[in-house]
Simulated scan of single mutants.
Amino acid sequence: METQTRTSGSDTAALGLGSVLVGSLPAALMTAEAPDRYTVEAVFTRRPERDEIIGILERETRDRLAQAGYPAVDLTISDRRLEIANTNLEELRDGLGTVIADRLAEISAGVRSKRDAAAIRYQEAAAGEQARATSVVALAESVSFRTSARRGPGWDQRSTTAEDRAQVDDWTDEGGHGR
Rank of each mutant, 00 (worst) to 15 (best):
M1N: 13
M1H: 06
T3C: 02
T3A: 04
Q4A: 05
T5F: 01
T5K: 11
T5A: 13
S8W: 02
G9P: 04
G9L: 03
S10N: 11
S10Q: 14
S10V: 13
S10H: 14
D11Q: 13
T12P: 07
T12Y: 00
A13S: 06
A13T: 12
A14C: 09
G16R: 02
G16F: 03
L17K: 00
L17D: 06
G18W: 03
G18K: 12
S19C: 06
V22S: 12
G23Q: 13
L25D: 09
L29S: 07
L29C: 08
M30T: 07
T31K: 02
A32I: 10
P35V: 11
R37G: 07
Y38N: 07
V40Q: 01
V43G: 00
V43P: 00
T45H: 03
R46T: 08
D51T: 09
E52Q: 05
I53M: 03
I54C: 08
I54Q: 09
L57H: 04
L57W: 01
E58T: 05
T61P: 00
T61W: 03
R62Q: 07
R62A: 09
D63N: 07
A66M: 07
A66Y: 02
A68S: 13
A68Q: 03
P71I: 03
A72I: 05
A72G: 05
A72D: 15
A72R: 09
D74K: 05
D74S: 09
L75N: 04
I77D: 02
S78R: 10
R81W: 02
L82V: 12
E83R: 15
E83A: 12
N86P: 04
N86R: 08
N86D: 14
T87D: 05
N88G: 11
L89W: 00
L89Y: 01
E90W: 01
E90F: 06
E91G: 09
E91D: 14
E91A: 15
E91V: 13
E91N: 11
L92W: 03
L92P: 05
L92S: 01
D94I: 02
D94L: 04
G95N: 05
G95W: 01
G97P: 02
V99A: 08
D102S: 15
R103E: 15
A105Q: 06
S108Y: 02
G110M: 08
R112M: 13
R115T: 10
D116T: 07
D116A: 15
A118Q: 10
A119L: 13
A119F: 08
I120F: 06
Y122E: 15
Y122T: 14
Q123C: 04
A126L: 07
A126P: 00
G128L: 07
E129K: 12
Q130G: 11
Q130M: 11
A131Y: 06
S135L: 15
A138I: 06
A138Y: 00
A138W: 00
L139Q: 14
A140M: 04
A140H: 05
A140N: 09
S142F: 00
V143S: 10
S144K: 04
S144W: 03
F145W: 02
T147C: 08
G152C: 01
W155R: 14
R158N: 01
A162W: 10
E163R: 14
D164P: 00
Q167R: 15
Q167P: 00
D169A: 15
D169G: 08
D170V: 13
W171F: 11
T172G: 11
D173G: 09
E174I: 05
E174N: 02
G175V: 07
G178T: 10
R179V: 14
R179P: 15
R179M: 13
